[in-house]
Every structure is written in structure tokens, then in C-alpha cells.
Amino acid sequence: MLTFKRWGFDWAADWTMWLALILIPTVLTAFMNNDRLIAAGAHWLYHKRRWIRTYELESVRVASGLTANDLALGQDGREVLIRVDNLQENPALWDLVYNGIRHSVANGAKVIDDTAAKSPSARSMLNL
């Protein structure tokens, strides 16, 4: 766009333009990156510096995010918010978390579906 506006490539010699061309996408990528470390074991899940015991959950909330569904798992006043897509990318990880969620729901964890108005199939995504 600047090439047409200034009738040439003289803008390429301006260091502030290069700074903006590199800095803005780098900052946006850093803030939009949701692929932080996710780890799970037989009875726990770790994400964004938070641990939660998946077999002792008190609440399971499915919320519609901007690009995907988010899963909020609550226990003892703590909540881990994670995109379902990020969990489902690794089938073994998803199996561990899913089994813990099912066990917690069977033992009385409250299921809150914030996506019911937008998508009636959100709860079926978890098959609860």
C-alpha cells in the first residue's frame, strides 16, 4: 500500500516501518498463542501454571470462545480454562482428561453449558 501511496519503495529504507512490520505481528502472536504447556496424568491436569484433580471436579463448564469451545474445570475455588481443541489434538491426553470429567460428573459435578443457546450440540461434544 505504501508503495503505491509514495510512488516507490523509499519506505523500505525507513527503520521505523521495519520495526512496526516485525514488532506488531510478534506481539499479536505472543498474546494470541494459546498453546501453552498442557500435561495430564491419571488423575490430574496442568495448564497455565494451574493444577487440578480431574477425578474430583466440582464443576464442568463448556463456554463458546471466539474460535472454539472452551472447557472450564473447577475444583476447590480454582478453575482451569482450556480450549477443547487443544486437548483433543492429543488423543491420549484427551482420554485422561475425559475419563476424569466423566467420573466427576457421575459423582455429582455440576455441568454448566454456556453454549446451549448458540449450539445445541455443545454438550454432546463431551457426551455427558
Rank of each mutant, 00 (worst) to 15 (best):
G8R: 11
L23F: 14
V111Y: 06
L66F: 06
G77L: 05
V97P: 00
L19W: 05
A92I: 05
L19N: 01
A20K: 00
I22D: 00
V62K: 05
D35S: 09
H43P: 00
D113I: 01
W11F: 15
L57Q: 12
A117S: 03
V62D: 00
D70G: 04
L87I: 05
L81A: 12
L21P: 00
I82R: 04
S64Q: 15
D14H: 11
H43L: 08
E79G: 04
K48R: 15
I24T: 09
V60Q: 03
V97Q: 02
A109C: 04
R102F: 06
A12I: 12
W44I: 01
L37G: 12
L93G: 05
I52G: 01
V27F: 13
V62H: 01
S121K: 11
R53G: 07
A13V: 13
V60Y: 02
A30H: 06
I52Q: 00
G77I: 06
V27P: 04
V27L: 15
E56I: 01
R50C: 05
K48H: 15
T67E: 12
Q75M: 05
L87S: 01
D14P: 00
W44T: 08
A68R: 11
N107I: 00
I38M: 15
N99S: 15
S121D: 12
P120L: 08
N69K: 10
D35V: 00
P25S: 03
W51P: 03
T115V: 15
A12G: 03
A39N: 10
D70E: 11
N86C: 12
W18F: 02
W11C: 04
L19F: 10
A72R: 04
A109Y: 05
I38C: 13
A30N: 06
W18G: 11
L45V: 13
V62C: 02
G77N: 04
A12F: 07
E89R: 11
S104Y: 03
S119C: 13
N34L: 13
D14R: 10
S121T: 14
T29A: 12
N99Q: 12
G77Q: 12
D70R: 06
L19E: 02
A106T: 07
G65I: 09
M32I: 07
I24G: 02
I38D: 03
D10M: 04
R36H: 15
I82W: 01
H103M: 12
A68M: 10
V27C: 13
N99L: 15
A20Q: 01
L93T: 08
A12S: 08
P91I: 14
I24E: 13
R83S: 08
D95I: 03
H47L: 13
S64T: 14
A12R: 14
W44Q: 06
A63R: 07
L57R: 03
N34R: 09
F31G: 06
